[in-house]
Amino acid sequence: MDIEYMIISFSSTHQAMHFEKCLLMHFAIELIPTPRHISASCGLSIKFEVEDHISLIKHLEDEDKMGIKLYHFIIGNSDCKIIPLEWEV
């Protein structure tokens, strides 16, 4: 069975820590080292469940998302699909 999750990557460590603070009380998120498949970003990313996608984006509506990227990870048995997503839904 495929494993799916969402990843937000950041352009700075301060940004990553700020977003963690914003989200931690409201969503089951994890601050993790940025997956190797994503190169252009700082070393930290936020991982969260696919089902929280819409409400999490809504929660971050007023945040400055300059340099912040959103990805959908689908990990299969032998392959890994990474789909870049827009902040607007």
């Binding site: 460590t13 990553a16 820590m17 963690e20 994890e30 601050l31 993790i32 080292p33 070393g43 930290l44």
Partner: peptide, 14 residues
């Protein structure tokens, strides 16, 4: 300290 906490979490995740 805040960075140290983040790095520790990050280390154990990896």
């Amino acid at each position: 300290r805040a960075l140290g906490e983040v790095l520790m979490k990050s280390y154990f995740y990896a």
